[in-house]
Amino acid sequence: MSSIRDLSTEADWLEAYPVMKQLRNHLTPERFLELVKEAAATEGYRLAALYEEGKIVAITGFMPMLTLYNGRFIWVCDLVTDSNERSKGYGEKLLSYVEKWAKDHGYDIISLSSGLQRQDAHRFYEDKMEYEKKSFVFLKEL
């Protein structure tokens, strides 16, 4: 039976690293921990994990934001299911968890971005989770 739990300690975060590394493969454990600590302290970033038989099989990271475009909303920064555990409904459960958390905390909008190459993820967001494609995200490295 699966369960979802908020991850709030360094030990929790490091336990989540092997699954997160599948999405954020540029991060070392040290850098991952550094970024999660800072984002949690300054931006309200939260990590939640879906456990199956005591093992993390999927993770989401999200945080509250405020923009003129959306007003107050939740930004899903990360959503990843272990590559050996995909197509079992774990992503749907975690995103539904974020949606419930958002509603319970007074947020009416959830937003996220997804890499252009991630066609399967796009189908999941649009077809299964009923998200609308609203814009492109642009990035410039300085």
Rank of each mutant, 00 (worst) to 15 (best):
E126K: 14
V80E: 02
E38F: 13
I59T: 03
G71F: 11
E15F: 06
A40W: 02
V80N: 05
W75S: 01
K88T: 08
H26F: 13
G44F: 10
Q117V: 12
E92D: 04
L27M: 14
S87W: 05
D108V: 10
S83K: 13
E132H: 12
E132G: 06
R72T: 09
A39F: 03
D78N: 11
H26K: 12
V80Y: 00
G71Y: 13
D108G: 11
L79N: 01
G91H: 14
E52C: 02
V76Y: 01
K88I: 09
Q119W: 01
V80W: 01
W75I: 02
K93R: 15
A58P: 00
A48E: 03
G91K: 15
V98I: 12
K103R: 15
I109Q: 08
L66P: 08
S114K: 09
K100L: 04
P29G: 07
P18W: 15
K128Q: 05
G61F: 14
P18N: 14
F124Y: 03
R86G: 04
N70T: 14
L66G: 06
A41C: 03
D82L: 03
L35P: 01
Y45W: 06
R72L: 09
E99P: 00
P64S: 13
Y69I: 00
D78M: 10
H122C: 06
R46N: 13
W101N: 04
I110Y: 03
E15W: 05
S113I: 11
S87Y: 11
P18T: 13
S113Q: 08
M65L: 10
M20V: 13
Y125L: 04
A39K: 15
H105F: 08
K134I: 15
I110L: 05
K37M: 10
E92T: 09
L66D: 08
E126L: 00
W101C: 07
A121K: 07
W101F: 11
T67K: 07
Y90S: 02
E34L: 07
P64C: 11
A41E: 13
G54D: 10
F32N: 07
Y125F: 12
R123K: 10
L35S: 08
E85F: 10
H122G: 05
T60W: 03
A41Q: 14
V36Q: 12
N84F: 13
H122S: 07
R86N: 08
V36D: 05
E52D: 12
